[in-house]
Design a protein around this nucleic acid. Structure first.
Lengths: 226, 226
DNA sequence: GCTTTTGCACTGACCAGTCAGCGCAAAAAT
DNA sequence: ATTTTTGCGCTGACTGGTCAGTGCAAAAGC
């Protein structure tokens, strides 16, 4: 339950509730609440220190539960982490997909959809900076147990962007020459890293500033065009 | 002068051309060679596993020296890591700066300079994937001893891009409305992440493919323009 | 009366950092 | 020319501490 940490560096990244899927709880509510507390505790600690540098005792303490409870709810430290990853990326992809569908419903084009997805990404990162940081730090690691979990989960997120790009090409809205997989990866990367940088090194800027900068870049209005 | 190969896998990545203390005392060649071996061993292991999950014994073993030698050459595990970071980012900024200067010398505009820097970034990542991976994984970490080292070092790299953008705006080549710091951060991020993704998930693509995709994105030729 | 949580002692593996000393080549002494 | 000394680079067994995971009896929800 404790939040905020006195960080030596210029980066005060704080935690937030990892948006519980809320309403629908399959198991007991109590158990689900405990797991939720453990997710929240783990996500900040691991984002700050890394997986191996974070101890189970720390996680339990920050979550305000006994160590035994961690092992009652999760088979191991790394299982807890893997479920955390799945949970978090699930929220992100849902958010991206929702943004794309919303613009479609409102009659916007694919450019608008892309723009909406950029904003959705930024909002997500604004809300869960610790999770995003942790995701980026672990994504390209080889040799780790959860590496395959991450690859799958990344593909889901990138696929949403690829879908919009592909439809845009088919509809003639985007140049037929764009390389869909590479462009999608670049876009996701651009948003991810720009947002982390924003949070870490330019926290005084507003979400709208960042969105505007990315939008401009995306629409080629950098090289002095109207 | 050897270069690296496949990314996902135990592949030795060489950081050559030290030139770190070259200006000062000659120093024993032997010692310098040992430090070099330790850098090389550490960079891959830490990229694969993370800092805390990598043991000093592993580093020593891969470098082919005794554990004591690590401590003879570096005050601690984290000092070894910090020096590794400084060295690596030094290479990157030098490479970016060189690219910008080269295009200027050849009479290219700022757009060309940006393009050349994107390519220089890709070439760097192609050559030192492990280092790049490690850099990204640690950059936004708070609470770590080397966090301030990294912030400084990041600023050096981003500043090179900012410089080109600023000159471009002043010269009227870029829209006066672009947000220089944010755009620079986004550009660096785009290149970094796109390249890591390329190496990890689409290794069959060529450097030219990736460069073309990023170039197109950068020049707004995504939304179906000539 | 189940499920869930607690508190706490315990274990065994693992690991950063230390230290006394080895090999060896170049200088110094004889 | 030979022995002796010096110091650098390196070694690897060892230490003190840490931490994931266990076991279990008692309490607290539901």
């Amino acid at each position: 339950m404790n939040r905020s940490a006195a960080f030596p560096g210029p980066v005060p990244v704080t935690i937030d509730a990892m948006g519980s899927s809320s309403a629908t709880s399959p198991g007991s509510t109590r158990r689900e609440a405990t797991r939720q507390k453990l997710y929240e505790a783990a996500v900040t600690l691991i984002a700050e220190q890394g997986f191996s540098a974070t101890t189970v005792d720390e996680i339990a303490e920050r979550a305000g539960v006994a160590k035994g409870t961690v092992y009652y709810n999760f088979a191991s430290k790394s299982v807890l982490f893997e479920e955390l990853l799945r949970h978090g990326v699930g929220l992100l992809t849902a958010s991206l997909r929702e943004a794309a569908e919303r613009t479609a419903r409102e009659g916007g084009g694919k450019v608008d959809a892309l723009d909406a997805m950029v904003r959705a990404g930024l909002v997500f990162i604004d809300r869960y900076p610790a999770f995003t940081q942790l995701y980026v730090a672990e994504l390209w690691r080889t040799n780790r147990a959860w590496q395959s979990t991450l690859a799958v989960v990344r593909q889901e997120a990138v696929a949403v962007v690829e879908g919009v790009l592909r439809e845009g090409v088919e509809g003639g809205e985007f140049s037929a020459e764009i390389d869909v997989p590479l462009t999608a990866a670049a876009l996701v990367g651009m948003v991810l890293v720009a947002a982390l940088d924003w949070k870490s090194f330019q926290p005084e800027r507003s979400l709208d500033d960042v969105h505007a900068a990315l939008s401009r870049l995306l629409q080629g209005r950098v090289s002095g065009r109207p």
